[in-house]
Amino acid sequence: MAAAKKTRNPKGAKVAKVAASAKRKAAAKTPAGKNLKQNVVIRAGAETRRTGAQRIAPDHSPRAKVVAVKAPRTLAAAASTRGDLQRRVEQFLYAQSELLDNKYWQDYINLFAADGVYWMPVTTDQTEWEGSPSIFAEDKLLMQVRMGRITHPNAWSQAPMWATNHLVSNVVIEKETAKEIVVRSRFHMMELRRDNLRHFGGTYRHTLVRKGDSFAIKLQRVDMFNSQATYDYVLQIWV
């Protein structure tokens, strides 16, 4: 906290520097490991000069500015209003895949209820999305961070060719109550990055709540069958 304050005032910073160097000299007499007093806390936006992350303008990037485009109506989950529950749920899952593969991130996030959660646990025996190691454990706000990252022109790892292709099948309604529907399905996602193809597969378990004629996702649980295999590069976005 102290350092953040110092940098606002150039005069103060000078004094602080002298003090730090005197401190360092004193500390040098003691073993190096002891010279570990907490003295710096940094914070984005804590100083007025706009450098570093703030200065690297998006036009440094080989990527064009990513403009948020709303998904066409034909892809939106509203397409799931006709037919019996099985058919409507299937249509909802297909629409979800289309949104992901077509990179309509905001529309995908909009599928979630206000308290909705996207969760990919490490193992199938995990029961709570918070409090155990997970590959993804994101509420809607964290999903906004992930979307913010991937759509930022300087998400460097997005510069190479990158796309996904999802298939969803084996759709089974596990439970249906007045409030909630639990749907289990299988997915297969292929991912292209540069010239490399990767495969991810597993089970989705959606806890859906009714929202008008359609549904909202309260929990999308993703148990990937290869979740504990070695990752050749990481996962940048929801599977």
């Binding site: 190096a32 010279n35 710096v40 806390v41 940094i42 984005a44 100083e47 992350a53």
Partner: peptide, 30 residues
């Protein structure tokens, strides 16, 4: 969010480099 701190702020975070190549990046997150 700390990752997006300015160059000057990052420049204030000291490293200590020991023999055998070991080292410490001092704390910055509070």
């Amino acid at each position: 969010s700390t990752f997006a701190s300015s160059f000057e702020q990052w420049d204030s975070v000291q490293t200590i480099n020991f023999p055998r190549g070991h080292g410490v990046l001092k704390a910055y997150m509070g």
